[in-house]
Design a binder for these strands. Structure first.
Length: 425
RNA sequence: GGAGCGGUGUCCGAGUGGUUUAAGGAGACGGUCUUGAAAACCGCUGUACCGCAAGGUACCGGGGGUUCGAAUCCCCCCUGCUCCGCCA
């Protein structure tokens, strides 16, 4: 969330930002709730001060009548305090609710726009793959090679699940290891995180676990959820702590399963592996000082570019427009790979990297001690290294041959132990 | 999952209703002394919020309760250790 003091001092800019991002939030309501809260705090603290003075006075011996009067005064103050505490709690709950709706400020250079079609292509690496035969999509290839089984998964687990089989398994493991090796060379600490996290951590990261449109699976009666990304567990790693400035920037590479409800998502665009309830992902996460975050954000994007150009997959980079940013992000870049089987050939998102500045750190209470000994919120950034399911789409569809076999990108061969997958059926 | 014992400041650790303003110790920081250092001695010590400020309020694992007054009494929860059960 944003700092309420920042909102007060920049109310016009905050209003404009909410409009630019096409979000429903009321900055003026937040301000007036905060004023009410402060007034209640002053009244409450005054009442508590009088209670403390009264109790302090009762340590001394005194006349019975005076003692009785003081006890009576104490009772009265106790009631006043209870009432004020209740009003304050209600006001703070409302304030918090409103603050959660207010999105992070957007980078001044982020393109203004409403939907993903307003995103700005800023770079291309490779061009759409050309075939001298009619290319198959990954669903057909997966069946032909006997490496992905959607039908059985639908029976056992439901739609949008899949089994990986045979070389498909090794391909996924190879992608994970390929990404990890790349990141470890760049100083990232590898982690396998829990696949479940507490609701308050999700909320701190900016996910909404509740509601019909939520993309999050919650675990009944536990106060926990299945994570949709290791961003959650890596961002929660340092919750409620003060980091020493000398350890920053901290770079983590988290391997996890990701679970998404994808309620209502259906149709051509979510065919096959593109939009599934469970997949494996290697996620990058960075904690840094505020002045370094823009540079590190570029570093994350460059790592993503290296990973995918290393695989030989054609992709483009888009600068995400304000309406498509998501509340926590200050700026976001997506890599979109060429997917020949997608709607007859289309760019499809394979990675996303966001600079969330201090928006997550404020709720999660992650700070560092600066040179003057003051505690300040860190900046937090995340980025996809490899989302296995989508990377597998891009590999199968771009590296397919006329006979339905698929070549393995040379960079993955040492990890796979084979350079080719042949049809089994 | 069951039983027992714990959780106090940066760390160790005392504290079973009002002289606790959280003792004492260690560490860190500042100073005296010293050519310099050590030792010794003196001083100081957290976070958040409200307030223009002076100052105030809160925080002893978390939440709720009892009381004029709670680190202290009661209830619930989290968490650590030990033992038992179960288990990959």
């Amino acid at each position: 969330m944003l700092d309420i003091r920042f909102i007060k001092e920049n109310i016009e800019a905050v209003r404009q930002n909410i409009a630019d991002r096409y979000m429903k939030a009321d900055a003026d309501l937040a301000v007036s709730l905060h004023d009410t809260r402060n007034r209640l705090i002053r009244e409450l603290e005054d009442a508590r001060r009088r209670r403390n003075e009264n109790a302090q006075a009762m340590k001394q011996p005194m006349e019975k009548a005076e003692r009785e009067a003081r006890i009576e005064e104490g009772r009265r103050l106790k009631e006043t305090i209870a009432e004020l505490e209740a009003s304050l709690a209600a006001t703070e709950a409302r304030l918090n609710e409103e603050l959660l709706k207010i999105p992070n400020m957007a980078h001044p250079d982020a393109p203004r726009g409403k939907e993903d079609k307003d995103n700005l292509e800023i770079k291309r690496c490779g061009e759409p793959t050309r075939f001298d035969f009619q290319p198959r999509d990954h669903v057909e290839l997966g069946q032909l090679l006997d490496i992905i089984d959607f039908d059985t998964a639908t029976r056992v687990s439901g739609t949008k699940f899949y089994y990986l089989k045979n070389e498909g398994v090794l391909l996924e493991l190879a992608l994970v290891r390929y990404a990890l090796d790349h990141l470890m060379r760049r100083g990232f600490v590898p982690m396998i995180t829990p696949d479940i996290a507490k609701t308050e951590i999700l909320e701190g990261i900016g996910f909404n676990p509740r509601g019909a449109e939520s993309n999050v699976y919650t675990l009944e009666g536990e106060g926990t959820c299945l994570i949709g990304t290791a961003e959650i567990t890596l961002g929660g790693y340092h919750a409620d702590s003060v980091l020493d400035a000398s350890v920053l920037p901290l770079r983590y590479a988290g391997v996890s399963h990701c679970f998404r409800r994808e309620a209502g998502a259906a149709g051509q665009f979510s065919k096959g592996l593109y939009r599934v309830h469970q997949f494996t992902k290697v996620e990058m996460f960075v904690y840094c000082q505020p002045e370094d975050s823009e540079k590190l954000h570029e570093e994350l994007r460059l790592i993503e570019e290296e990973i995918f150009s290393g695989l030989g997959i054609p992709f483009r980079v888009v600068d995400t427009c304000t309406g498509d940013l998501g509340a926590p992000a200050y700026r976001k870049w997506d890599l979109e790979a060429w997917m020949p089987g997608r709607n007859g050939g289309e760019w499809g998102e394979i990675t996303s990297t966001s600079n969330c500045t201090d928006y997550q750190a404020r709720r999660l209470n992650v700070r560092y001690r600066d040179a003057e000994g003051k505690n300040r919120h860190v900046h937090m950034l995340n980025g996809t290294a490899i989302a296995c399911s989508r990377a597998i789409i891009a590999i199968l569809e771009n590296f397919q041959q006329a006979d339905g076999s698929v070549n393995i990108p040379p960079a993955l061969v040492p990890y796979c132990g084979f350079d080719h997958i042949r049809p089994r059926v």
